[in-house]
Simulated scan of single mutants.
Amino acid sequence: MEAILKDPAGAVIGLDFDGTLSPIVPDPDAAVVHSEAPRTLAELGRHVRAVAIVTGRPPAKVLELGPALKEVPGLVILGHYGFERWEDGRICAPPPPAGVPRAKAELPLLLDSLGLADVALEDKGRAVAVHTRRSADPEGALAALREPLTALAAKHGLVVEPGRLVLELRPSGMDKGHALSAFLAERAARSVLFAGDDLGDLAAFDAVRSAGLPGVTVCSGSAEVTELADRADIVVDGPEGVVALLRELTSAFSRS
């Protein structure tokens, strides 16, 4: 943290969305960005080299759930683990992979055959997620899904990314670590902070460790995912704690 405080103009601040800037809710479409996050990010962005949201969600969905984020100067959203990018009001992305809609089309029949009608599907465009949070037995449903979803993903050239009571089918070859590493190189960062809450953020933690820069990893605390807390430099209490930490940083920059 010392390097970021001494040289904020060289710092990149990377942030996950769900569970980090937005509280986890049973229905992913009902998520809402923390009310203070857009203003805090706008203030922070005036001091640091860049602020980036690195998420598995499409950028358009992030902006739908947090429309005020559009007004954060210089914000970059690296969505779909870096496959899509929102910046300056525009989204750029390669064509979507064919395997995702094919796998999505087969999922209802697969879920029905497993007797798991109470799980929820989330269409992310370039990925499809199967959430068990609303199931009568979330952990049992997750365990029952792992093997058949892995087989379905392999059939269509996809991989399975585990998360907090969710399994996501997506293309291989990209994760939050790749996305963050590429962004750090692009911006010639001199230090980095990344905050996340889920298993998919471990790759970003690894990117911070291997970047060759002073780096800080922050866990947006969860009783459901202990691996991140074990590997984090700082553990805070969910999105409220993340926003408070970012406010403290901004205040420190303003005093220096």
Score class of each variant (00 low, 15 high):
residue 175 D to E: 13
residue 175 D to N: 15
residue 175 D to A: 06
residue 177 G to I: 08
residue 177 G to S: 11
residue 177 G to T: 05
residue 178 H to Q: 04
residue 178 H to V: 12
residue 180 L to K: 01
residue 180 L to E: 01
residue 181 S to H: 04
residue 181 S to I: 00
residue 182 A to Y: 01
residue 182 A to M: 07
residue 183 F to Q: 05
residue 183 F to P: 10
residue 183 F to R: 12
residue 184 L to A: 02
residue 184 L to G: 00
residue 184 L to R: 03
residue 185 A to P: 02
residue 185 A to R: 15
residue 185 A to I: 05
residue 186 E to H: 04
residue 186 E to N: 00
residue 186 E to P: 04
residue 186 E to L: 07
residue 187 R to Q: 15
residue 187 R to L: 14
residue 187 R to F: 06
residue 187 R to V: 13
residue 187 R to M: 14
residue 188 A to V: 02
residue 188 A to T: 03
residue 189 A to D: 08
residue 189 A to H: 10
residue 190 R to S: 15
residue 190 R to D: 12
residue 191 S to E: 01
residue 191 S to Y: 00
residue 191 S to F: 00
residue 192 V to C: 13
residue 192 V to E: 04
residue 193 L to D: 12
residue 193 L to I: 14
residue 193 L to A: 15
residue 194 F to S: 13
residue 194 F to W: 11
residue 195 A to F: 02
residue 195 A to D: 08
residue 195 A to P: 04
residue 197 D to N: 14
residue 197 D to T: 07
residue 197 D to I: 03
residue 198 D to Q: 06
residue 198 D to V: 08
residue 198 D to C: 11
residue 198 D to T: 10
residue 199 L to T: 03
residue 199 L to M: 10
residue 199 L to V: 09
residue 200 G to E: 13
residue 200 G to C: 06
residue 201 D to R: 05
residue 201 D to Q: 12
residue 201 D to Y: 07
residue 202 L to M: 12
residue 202 L to T: 07
residue 203 A to H: 10
residue 203 A to F: 03
residue 204 A to S: 05
residue 204 A to D: 02
residue 205 F to Q: 05
residue 205 F to P: 04
residue 205 F to D: 03
residue 206 D to N: 05
residue 206 D to P: 01
residue 206 D to F: 00
residue 207 A to Q: 11
residue 207 A to F: 11
residue 207 A to G: 12
residue 208 V to H: 05
residue 208 V to W: 08
residue 208 V to E: 08
residue 209 R to N: 06
residue 209 R to L: 07
residue 209 R to V: 07
residue 210 S to V: 13
residue 210 S to L: 14
residue 211 A to L: 13
residue 212 G to W: 02
residue 213 L to H: 10
residue 214 P to W: 12
residue 214 P to I: 13
residue 215 G to T: 01
residue 215 G to F: 01
residue 216 V to T: 15
residue 216 V to W: 07
residue 216 V to F: 05
residue 216 V to I: 15
residue 216 V to C: 14
residue 217 T to P: 08
residue 217 T to H: 13
residue 218 V to W: 06
residue 218 V to S: 10
residue 218 V to H: 10
residue 219 C to I: 03
residue 219 C to A: 15
residue 219 C to D: 14
residue 219 C to M: 02
residue 220 S to H: 03
residue 220 S to G: 13
residue 220 S to D: 01
residue 221 G to E: 15
residue 221 G to R: 13
residue 221 G to C: 08
residue 221 G to N: 11
residue 223 A to D: 15
residue 224 E to K: 12
residue 225 V to D: 02
residue 225 V to F: 09
residue 225 V to G: 09
residue 226 T to C: 01
residue 226 T to P: 11
